[in-house]
Write a protein that binds this DNA or RNA. Structure first.
Length: 862
DNA sequence: CTGTTTTGACTTTTT
DNA sequence: GTCAAAACAG
């Protein structure tokens, strides 16, 4: 942001003024200038965390358009997420104006391929001999998996031996490595490979019959189109003369092949530079490669210079983002990786405060710690939108969300159970897909009897068989259903009516906007009415939420019509299929952001919480027995740490519930407690304040039940006139954490059976589930938190003040106290001097505990 | 064919 | 502990 901000200040100027050389290079360091102004030819930019690579990329594009007088159509920029693409588009628009920027092509590999395939797919025949039409649909993982199940059972293979899920993954991996079904068939040697190849082929013929592609096909197929369709490659090759790829360390083989086909210059014209008026710039950081499970391979980046011969190398090594302490933490961790290129990252900021580390009792306690810190930060004038809470697995968000809701802190969750993966959204989208592409059998099967039309499995099977035999689409088969033997006349009529309905909508879809199409189909199918019935008859307690979600989808469609370049069904479906995290954070909305570490790639926040630093969770269990996987986890940790600008908090829980079943990693009696993450121990000791993990090998039981324990402290908080911190013991009272969370804030399904997680509680729009609208929900309105956005954050003072003492209620021996978790007790001992006191409390139920009043919420009752 | 009950998968990360 | 798919009963 340090670098980005100056661009934003220029919005008042006209595009002509903006393009001037001096402004494009304003405030850049020498290496950044070199990258922005690099001449023709290939160029590798090694950009460490926080080194301003987004700024460099956007200005590079602007530079090409203005200083180097290149046409906007010749620019192709590949980003890792749709959100990054949007961000880049916006920034470029500000520099060169909308008229120019809209002509560039910026997007993810997937969305770019999807868009281009619509034009060229009909000229293409797959190596297996299939043809697709331009109205193909994109299958997500669920669609693809159910197709796979069908294939495996059709081939009479045992789904215990050939687990559809695993097979799907293997085939996906093959495609990411650049294998088509046909190519793999030639290489398959062993028995199992032979079967796999059969499945691969059959799966693809099924996809083709449905006129569908999965995610991986988008890239692979477009690459094939370039290779095999005459003239296509030349056309695009001629058009895209300036290609930029961000996050290049996470490129896989299939994507690299594609880039190579597009970028590599045509054969040399005698005596002329083949790269004349052509450029290829790839940007990345090997230490941030975290997608190898998707077949990303950072070695592709390492060999870039030999793959593209006269490649120039530029290193951006100055970090403008984080404090020196945060960088030191990051560096001390990543240094433990061996598969690594040594790299310097020079810090451009002050030392900053220590990184706070806290050990909580359990995941709820951990969340409470975060909330308490949020309140303290608030008191210092920091706003919620400066804060992100990161975690390794999506499941971890639950406890945090619960506590945030309880404390009325608005939040925005990125990812999670994705909006479009919900049952009701998939239903409605399946209708749209079927309308768009009547050959889509998966969607057909999904909606044929939703809502109930009296069409069961037997009927559908027979119909599908008929469709298959006659080589027609399932929708067409419906129209002919009354003539099919074995189908009762009455059933046939229902089928015909369904087919006619879809056909009618199909025609309609060409003339009316998507949102109206949605309205029509929801009305005619009575989809919402049925849900309403379910809701009132209490059949489905989630029904109300589902209605909300469907309404949300209609709103999304309306929004789409307003903003999209081509607001048709076609681009709506493509977008919905490929977007998961669209504008997660609304401009101006003051809320905390929650997301996984993976989702945080490329982002930065002044204040970062990183939760769940426990062995088995982070690093994740599945990486424990592979050194390569462990190094990837470590890179993930590196990514997490380097998101932080000013303050970083690391937390872990002594106990953690997993699937309601007890602690993670936990078989056996002795492993009731979690083990602190090895990454904590890898941090140079002086950099952490609060908790520091015991030496390796020391058994966790050393801090056992009867022994007193100390909740992590604030690194001996330097006394500094009792400013910032304040009454957090007070309004937080002992009752804010009742043993069962039967809170009354959400009437729906919160009250009942012990500790309900509140998913869907209060309806569908549980913050952040919608990719489009993440407004915090009504009960979470910022009531308790009044963060004043007008009050500027105090960046300079902040980092040192983080260690300031927190006010707490002073106690002495004999005082009766109430604790949220341990109940009622009596202080039996006071340890340590003032401001750092610890209280030894004898609880009626929970025994004797040593507590730090700056964390433990002790309410004096006598 | 529908409605209910039971099983079982899920929790690594995402385009 | 949650959800959806599969299995079962009517």
């Amino acid at each position: 942001m340090v670098l980005g901000s100056d661009l934003e200040m220029q919005t008042g100027s006209t595009p002509e003024q903006m393009g001037s050389n001096s402004e494009l290079l304003d405030k850049l360091n020498a290496q950044q200038v070199e990258a922005v102004t690099a001449g023709w030819g290939p160029c590798l930019v090694i950009a460490g965390a926080g080194s301003g690579k987004t700024t460099v990329l956007t200005r590079r594009i602007a530079y090409l358009l203005t200083e180097m007088q290149q046409e906007a159509e010749t620019v192709l920029a590949v980003t890792f997420t749709n959100k990054a693409a949007q961000e880049m588009k916006n920034r470029i628009e500000k520099i060169v104006g909308w008229q120019t920027s809209r002509r560039t092509m910026i997007g993810t590999f997937h969305s770019i391929c999807a868009r281009l395939l619509r034009f060229d797919i009909e000229d293409y025949t797959t190596p297996e001999g299939h043809k697709l039409k331009s109205n193909f649909v994109i299958y997500d993982e669920t669609d693809s998996l159910s197709l796979m199940k069908g294939v495996i059972s059709r081939l009479n293979l045992d789904d215990k031996v050939f687990v559809p899920r695993d097979i799907r993954y293997q085939i996906s991996a093959l495609k990411n490595d650049g294998y088509t079904a046909q190519l793999y068939a030639q290489e398959a040697k062993s028995y199992r490979e032979g079967r796999l190849s059969e499945i691969f082929l059959a799966y693809h013929s099924d996809l083709a019959r449905n006129n569908a592609m999965d995610f991986d096909d988008l890239i692979l197929t477009f690459t094939q189109v370039l290779k095999t369709c005459p003239g296509v490659r030349t056309r695009y090759h001629h058009r895209f003369r300036h290609i930029m790829v961000d996050e290049f360390q996470d490129t896989n083989r299939a994507q690299f092949d594609l880039i190579r086909l597009l970028a590599e210059p045509a054969e040399e014209v005698l005596g002329q530079d083949p790269w004349l008026e052509r450029t290829l710039m790839v940007v990345g950081d090997v230490d941030q490669s975290i997608y190898s499970w998707r077949k990303a391979d950072y070695k592709i980046m390492l060999s870039f210079q030999s793959d593209f011969k006269p490649a120039r190398l530029i290193k951006l090594e100055e970090n403008y983002r984080s404090t020196a302490t945060i960088l030191d933490v990051a560096n001390s961790i990543i240094a433990n990786n061996s598969e690594r290129i040594d790299k310097v990252l020079r810090c451009n900021r002050g030392k900053g405060g220590k990184v706070q580390c806290f050990e909580a009792q359990d995941e709820i306690d951990e969340a409470y710690y975060v909330v308490e810190e949020l309140k303290r930060l608030n008191a210092r004038g920091r706003t919620l939108k400066e804060v992100v809470i990161l975690y390794r697995t999506n499941a971890q968000s639950r406890a945090i969300e619960e506590v945030l809701v309880r404390n009325h802190i608005p939040y925005t969750m990125v990812g999670g159970k994705r909006f479009y993966e919900r049952q009701e959204i998939k239903d409605v989208l399946a209708y749209l897909k079927l309308i768009y592409n009547p050959a889509d059998g998966q969607s057909f099967n999904r909606v044929i009897n939703v809502p109930r039309r009296g069409l069961g499995k037997t009927t559908v099977d027979r119909l599908n068989q008929y469709a298959l035999d006659s080589g027609i689409s399932p929708v067409q088969a419906c129209l002919e259903a009354e003539g099919i033997r074995d189908i009762a006349p009455k059933t046939g009529k229902s089928l015909r009516e369904f087919g006619e309905m879809v056909n009618r909508w199909h025609m309609l879809s060409k003339t009316i906007p998507v949102s109206q199409l949605l309205d029509t189909l929801l009305k005619e199918t009575k989809y919402i009415d049925k849900l309403q019935e379910d809701a009132t008859s209490a059949k489905d307690e989630l029904a109300l939420g589902r209605i909300e979600n469907v309404r949300e989808l209609v709103a999304v469609a309306q929004e789409f019509e307003k903003t999209a370049d081509e607001p048709d069904l076609d681009s709506f479906l493509t977008r919905i299929s490929l977007v998961s995290d669209l504008d997660a954070v609304r401009e101006g909305e003051d809320s905390v952001t929650l997301m996984t570490l993976h989702a945080a790639k490329g982002l930065e926040f002044p204040i970062v919480f990183l939760a769940g630093l426990e062995e088995g969770l982070f690093p994740h269990m599945r990486s424990l027995d592979s050194e390569t996987a462990m190094e990837e986890e470590r890179r993930l940790m590196y990514v997490g740490v380097t998101r932080a600008e000013d303050s970083l908090y690391l937390t872990l829980a002594r106990k953690r519930m997993v699937l309601g079943r007890g602690p993670a990693g936990g078989s056996g009696f002795s492993s009731n407690y979690t083990v602190p993450s090895r990454f904590l121990r890898e941090i140079t000791p002086g950099l952490l304040a609060g908790y520091y993990p015991p030496p390796a090998g020391e058994r966790r039981e050393a801090i056992s039940h009867d022994d007193p324990f100390v909740t992590g402290g604030f690194g001996g908080g330097q006394s500094r006139g009792g400013g910032g911190g304040n009454n957090y013991g007070n309004n937080y009272g002992g009752n804010s954490r009742p043993t069962n969370y039967g809170g009354n804030s959400r009437p729906n399904n919160y009250g009942g059976g012990g500790g309900s997680s509140g998913s869907y509680g209060g309806g569908a729009n549980r913050s952040g589930n919608s990719p489009y609208d993440s407004r915090p929900q009504q009960p979470a309105k910022p009531r308790a938190m009044r963060m004043d956005p007008n009050q500027p954050p105090d960046k300079t003072a902040h980092s040192s003040e983080i260690n300031a003492p927190v006010a707490f209620e002073r106690l002495s021996v004999g005082d009766k106290v109430q604790h949220a978790k341990f109940g009622v007790g009596t202080v039996v001992q006071v340890i340590g001097e003032k401001d750092k006191e610890l209280y030894n409390v004898e609880f009626d139920e929970a025994g004797r505990r040593l507590l730090d009043p700056r964390f433990a919420k002790l309410i004096k009752t006598s």
